[in-house]
Amino acid sequence: MSESTGRVSDRAERAVRRSPHRPPARRRAQGREAVLALLFTAPALIALAVLRLWPMGSALTTSLLAPGSDVLGLENFRYLFSDPAFLEMVRVTVLFSVIVNPLQIVLALALAVLLTQRLRGVRFWRILVFLPAAVPQAVSAIVWGVALRPDGPVNGFLATLGIDVQPFLSSKDQALFSIIVIVSWIGVGYWMMFLIAGLLDIPAMYSEAAAIDGAGWWQTFWFVIIPQLRRPLGFVLVADTVANFLVFAPVQILTRGGPEGATNLVMFEIYSRAYQYGDLSLAAAETVLLVLIVLAIVTLQFRLLPGKD
């Protein structure tokens, strides 16, 4: 392995050394680069257009059709905004997002830092922390359902600490929190892996330089490591936010949106409208709203990201 990496870096260094500094023939270069870019991006863009954008367009049309009508209009949206259950769902989803995203990102970053230190068995612990993401969701939901039963092991453990039986999923005050714990059990290790990849990619010379300047651990972390990590961190921020809007299986299997709508997150709402109530046009309207809202949030995140490209 060292042979190949050595060769790549040699070649790269040679290339950098020889790099001439002359003004490029701008327009021609732009045209050439556009053609190249199309060649490189075409397979993926075609796949995305056919597999995501096209069906979304079809959902958009459906969302504009009131049930039993073939005239385009905003009736479905009007219905949604006058439906208290819908508004409550929005509140629950926002509350969930506001808690779960910072929680997961902070924990994932902390674990990523911890598990890139030179510790005994560190690679093994990394795999363990990641594993929940690979467990089929139907099974992990059942496992947690059993764990959080009133007579389950979590309550059994609390009892040894002298804490009373907690209702968890069957309480409207604790159910959302329980779902957050479950999706974080899955999500933290998953997002951690992206940050570990990013951390391992930061050249050691940066922290070496900081150390020579006499910077402490926290200073190095904040002023050297975090800026170097901005791209993976930006990715995790955006991708985690989107992923948490799409949480579905634990809700469907464990709480079905209850008790009293306390865990009725947007994807379960869309699923139950479409596949349980058979109201495809309302489900499509909710999907359109969801995409618009997530788009707005992600655009905002892009603007706030440091070192925007």
């Binding site: 209702p167 409207k172 079905r256 949106g257 209850g258 009293e260």
Partner: peptide
């Protein structure tokens, strides 16, 4: 669907 959700909520208090 609506009834099953109501029963679950009543069960939970």
């Amino acid at each position: 669907e609506v009834m099953n959700k109501a029963f679950a909520d009543i069960r939970n208090g």
